[in-house]
Design a protein around this nucleic acid. Structure first.
Lengths: 256, 256
DNA sequence: GCTGGACTTCCACTCAGTGGAAGGGAGACG
DNA sequence: CGTCTCCCTTCCACTGAGTGGAAGTCCAGC
């Protein structure tokens, strides 16, 4: 490509994925100009790329002018190892926990500086939650996020601690406080939150270990209030993660 | 792009999606050279594009040299309307049928000249089947496929009839026979197959109508043998599709 | 009928993308 | 232990695919 390029270094492919990335949970349907704005691309460029993506089935146009993620992306995404690997294998254990507690259960991994939710179980009667399967949330204000952050590489921790966004009045935004919490998470083997992501929702989470050492995911539970259930919930989560860890080690040897 | 282009007319984006398209149910993990061969791209080009896709999270490399579909594609795919729309809305009806029959239930739409399976319910004790949620199969040898084909535009029918691949000894590969079957499907409102896709599996399927006329999907059921259950199964499927149709019409007005 | 916003088309410019070739590395065979 | 094979990675001269400002179209609201 060439011509008067506004942002040299950005490849066509990265532009195309910027368009796909413009969609999220709150924006499942976008117009051309919304796409253009959210992806940070000139309108003309957006127009051309979107037309191509529609042709490839990566996007679809619904009512005139409204674009949605296409079925091709959906069906290709179902081939991703998350779908079959960890997620499927952990599913029965999540069901056990859900059956025992009737609270919302989460399985999540770290993706860059965010939590990616692999699975979520929760009845309609559970605490209202913003998480969604396939959705991303900040690491610093969710239970599973704190667990994953506590076991993340230094540079990730540094980057996250460097920009702690306030979500509720109770979100921990002081880097030193959070660092101390992470230290405690590593020591105690579990993390908690209270009203830090959603008012009226508290959570506990524990790491899922492979080969007894590698933190490959986190398992968490969200309740209205923790009180003295905490230790029981941690115990229930640990039973599940031990089960998951065992199955993981059987299916594939410890290191990646 | 430029230089010595082997296939002028193919854009970078289409090449990138050719790589993603190289993955399917039987090939969830590919090496660089497999990707190159399956996508029909020169190795050097594949190498560069794959590296970029990995950087974007669209692909991931597992054991050295083995690539899989990335989590980014997975999570973006979950935003596709199939996931939330038809699929979610039809789900309770599929469960009803499954509960009543204990057989494998399918919800599918037509995508080009193939069936795309949106959902599938079936216990482990059901007939073994090759379908998979998000998977594609030929139109001419599946129950849902015949329904969708019977209501497809002429050019699609012509293309499919022009190349009928034999899957089992019982697959209908004569265009005139299949055309007659499609006529019967339109008249009777249901389609059947017997050992045409998988030996030992028969199916019945009916259309899902929106606004009473538009065939937007097909609902089917797979059993070991049809015999005289046929009419009962058709009746059960019709109850479900009427339910789905009603909900569809409520949520969005008849035409697209 | 005018104003603003959203979409579409056009086209001169140029650098991102191309892929053949050559280099490295691991395993199999004789 | 040399040779063969197969896979992955890097290099680089060439060029047309991709770019985006500008101008044109369409429609709704005032």
């Amino acid at each position: 490509m060439a011509g008067r390029v506004s942002t040299p270094g950005a490849s066509v492919v990265s532009r195309a994925f910027a368009l796909l990335g413009a969609f999220d949970d709150r924006h499942r349907s976008l117009t051309l100009s919304e796409l253009s704005r959210r992806a940070g691309l000139p309108l003309a460029t957006t127009h051309r790329l979107v037309a191509e993506l529609v042709g490839l089935g990566a996007l679809a146009r619904r009512e005139p002018g409204h674009y949605v993620v296409g079925r091709r992306i959906w069906s290709t995404g179902l081939l991703a190892p998350v779908q079959t690997g960890l997620r499927e294998l952990a599913s029965p254990f999540l069901h056990d926990i859900f059956a025992a507690t009737r609270a919302t259960v989460h399985l999540a991994v770290r993706e860059g500086t965010e939590v990616l939710y692999l699975d979520r179980l929760g009845g309609s009667e559970s605490v209202p939650i913003v998480s969604r399967v396939g959705g991303r949330l900040p690491l610093h204000c969710t239970g599973v996020g704190k667990v994953l952050l506590a076991h993340a590489p230094h540079e990730v921790v540094a980057e996250v601690l460097g920009s702690l966004r306030r979500v509720t009045p109770y979100t921990v935004v002081r880097a030193d406080l959070l660092a101390a919490q992470l230290e405690r998470v590593r020591r105690d083997g579990y993390a908690t939150t209270a009203d830090e992501m959603t008012i009226g929702a508290s959570s506990v989470a524990v790491p899922v270990l492979r080969g007894g050492t590698d933190v490959v995911a986190a398992l968490g539970i969200v309740v209205a209030e923790l009180r003295r259930d905490r230790q029981q919930l941690v115990a229930a989560l640990r039973v599940a993660t031990q089960g998951i860890g065992r199955v993981l080690d059987e299916s594939a040897p410890p290191p990646d």
